[in-house]
């Protein structure tokens, strides 16, 4: 990926552009693909779209008991929100969005296909697939467990559901209702992510391990022995590195050459407590983590494990997203604040 002009090789300073209060734990934040809008969801039930300057653009109907997930379309000013009430809505500039899906079980994960033509959502044990306007395409009920996370293949053909027993991959264009692929593994998956190259997928697991599968051979490897369950993973834009958020550190596994089997990961340190969210800048030069201890940003192309930038927010942070192509982040806190941070 080409380096975006203006992105420093190593950021050294951070400035808070603005912050806002959503009332309770921030469950998700995200930037629109064009970087002009942001969205955030909170356990207070609020689901909001703001301008990059922090001005409120849209306040969606409250999700009672909490708005749990959001995802921006990679191709349009279009964002999906879902919550504990089992309701899914897709917002676009214009009239207020209708309810696209309503389920008895809560929806804690939504994911757009990379080409923006399909949206997947997990409600309890049911996986739903939708058109960009919310028209239902497919429904896959009775999965082995609640869908903990969703990830699309790079070609947007298959969607992977993180369920107990290993990821199940569905192909909405097929007429068959069964999974097109299943990587069987006895364990509880918490998060699932596909490498941008489309060659690997990785899951963070309840049993304190990370499991990686090659798409689509299913050849796998496992990194175990972490001190906590793993709920934060991020692939570098080049797909060479997999970052794993743990307790007191983030480890980087190198997938170059023959892969990480038998290697020792690089440790990124400089915080105490849990790493709750991880994300690479779009040019891959920086890796940011939200932690119990504030925001940390490492200039990963340089060696060493200490952060280039540490931002003390004064409260544990819960989630983050980079502004596409810019050295800027939106972070969410456990106390309910969203904060736009600019690096230089």
């Amino acid at each position: 990926m080409p380096r975006v002009s203006g992105t420093p090789a190593s950021a050294t300073e951070a400035r808070i552009a603005w912050s806002d209060d959503l009332g309770d734990y921030v469950t998700a934040v995200g930037w629109a693909a064009d970087g002009a809008l942001v969205a955030a969801s909170s356990l207070s039930g609020r689901a909001v779209v703001l301008g990059a300057d922090g001005a409120l653009v849209a306040e969606l109907p409250e999700h009672p008991m909490g708005a749990l997930a959001l995802d921006w379309s990679p191709r349009a000013q279009r964002v999906a929100f879902a919550g504990q009430d089992g309701v899914l809505r897709i917002w676009e500039p214009g009239p207020a969005p209708a309810v696209a899906w309503e389920q008895p079980a809560w929806i804690s994960t939504v994911a757009w296909a990379p080409n923006g033509t399909r949206l997947a959502a997990g409600a309890g044990r049911t996986l739903g697939v939708f058109e960009p306007d919310g028209t239902p395409v497919r429904e896959y009920p009775d999965l082995p467990s609640t869908v903990a996370d969703l990830a699309w293949s790079g070609d947007s053909r298959r969607v992977g559901a993180a369920v107990y027993g290993g990821p199940l991959w569905f192909e909405p264009a097929r007429t068959a209702d069964d999974a097109a692929a299943h990587f069987a593994w006895t364990g509880s998956l918490l998060t699932l992510t596909v490498a941008p190259s489309g060659k690997w997928c990785a899951s963070g697991n309840q049993d304190r391990s990370v499991h990686v599968w090659r798409l689509w051979s299913g050849d796998d490897l496992q990194m175990s022995g972490y001190p906590t369950k793993i709920s934060a993973l991020a692939w570098s834009p080049s797909s060479r590195f997999l970052a794993v958020g743990s307790f007191d550190d983030v480890t980087l596994w190198d997938f170059a050459g023959r892969g990480p089997r038998g290697t020792t990961p690089r440790a990124l340190t400089g915080f105490e407590g849990a790493a709750t969210g991880l994300a690479y800048s779009t040019d891959g030069t920086h890796l940011a983590a939200t932690t119990d201890d504030g925001l940390r940003v490492w200039a990963v192309e340089r060696g060493g494990g200490t952060p280039a930038v540490a931002v003390e927010i004064g409260e544990p942070l819960s989630t983050l997203a980079w502004r596409p192509g810019c050295p800027e982040l939106l972070v969410g806190s456990a106390a309910g604040r969203i904060i736009r941070v600019c690096l230089s």
């Binding site: 309770d24 734990y25 909490g66 504990q84 804690s108 309840q206 819960s318 456990a334």
Partner: peptide
């Protein structure tokens, strides 16, 4: 053996203000 549903529900519950 553990109850995965409880982990999720209680985890969400304890995040609330």
């Amino acid at each position: 053996t553990v109850r995965g549903d409880l982990i999720r529900i209680l985890g969400n519950l304890m995040k609330r203000r």
